[in-house]
Design a protein around this nucleic acid. Sequence first.
DNA 1: TGCCAGGCCCTCTTTAGGGCCTT
Length: 212
Amino acid sequence: MQSADVAEEGGRSLVFFDLETTGLGQSCDIVQLAAVSGGHSFNLYVVPHSPMQRGATKVTGFRVRRQRLYLHHQRVLTNSLREVLVSFIAFLQMLGRPLVIGHNSRRFDCPLLAQALDKLDLRAEFESAISGCVDTLPLAREILKDHCLQSFRQENLVKELLGMNYKAHDALEDVRALQALYSVLQPTPELVRRHMFTLDTMENKDPVPAVL
DNA sequence: TGCCAGGCCCTCTTTAGGGCCTT
């Protein structure tokens, strides 16, 4: 972890997170979990139980051979899923019940994270470590509804709003780009509140009453 | 060898279908 100023909004720290996984289905496993908050960063890898789907290997560069994880043919150090999740919860606790922010996180990252937390009986601990979750995909769609953007993919938003290309599909690079993107979007506290959800309520359409 | 998910949103809709978004 690195230390520096922590991004804040309404007195809450903001943590930007992203998962790389074995694919896109509900049965997929986490391969990489990365997060940033200001200058603090978190980045750990897991050897997945399920095989990497071809499309996932193509876009992420991850491969598994003989229970070892490789990224673009270079072996990476890994931890158990429990070690990764417990460390992530400790990272969140260090930041003082932050808001956890991801792109399309309500439909992709958070359900997979919840599934992993449930498997290891860590969901309650995670929930108590955060203030809530926010998905920047619907947030960006609402903020930029008059900008006639053709795509709200994170990679495209970063290109359009920040004028930069970056190494998409590396979780740490993705969260750094998302943090920069969020600072440009500048959502109001009211807008953030309306887009907040928790792991328990993410399947509901209704916003979660939140205190910012 | 080839295929592989799923929920939201929009519209050429609502008795539906296709594109988007994540890996």
